[in-house]
């Protein structure tokens, strides 16, 4: 089997394990955009320490793994202008649609949430269109 598929499956199980721990331990749905968005707009003020602790772990361990040479550093694929545009779209879109890959994709699909399934189909198709567009426009570095 393709080594990328095996890495994807193992990494995926760690992502799902993290979501399971957060659900059964703290009673929360692990959605990256919601965790951060609640800190940005203040709607998550009541449990900000829990959100900050989650994000702290999320930032720290990958940094240590890359610094220790366990995982490779990745390179960006787009210039600053495209990164700004894409970042704005991801930030606004995930708040408008109330979720991203982790919330709608992992936590939503696994409980057969209609919204999670519909959102995942839509963002995957939109992602496919964006890849075609960015190549046609020469945005991919």
């Amino acid at each position: 089997m393709n080594p990328d598929w095996i890495a994807g499956l193992i990494g995926g199980m760690m992502i799902g394990g993290a979501a399971a721990l957060y659900l059964l331990g703290n009673g929360r749905i692990m959605g990256a955009s919601g965790l951060l968005g609640g800190l940005v707009d203040g709607t998550g003020r009541s449990n900000w320490t829990e959100r900050a602790a989650f994000i702290g772990g999320l930032v720290l361990l990958p940094a240590l793994l890359v610094a220790g040479g366990v995982a490779e550093r990745s390179a960006p694929i787009a210039g600053s202008g495209v990164l700004v545009l894409a970042g704005l779209m991801v930030g606004f879109g995930t708040r408008l649609g109330n979720g991203c890959t982790s919330g709608h994709g992992v936590c939503g699909i696994s409980r057969l949430s209609r919204r999670g399934i519909v959102a995942t189909v839509v963002y995957l198709l939109a992602g496919g269109i964006a890849v075609v567009l960015s190549r046609a426009l020469g945005w991919t570095a």
Partner: peptide, 8 residues
């Protein structure tokens, strides 16, 4: 919107 940004 999110999917487009993710793809870009």
């Amino acid at each position: 919107l999110f999917g487009l940004g993710w793809g870009f």
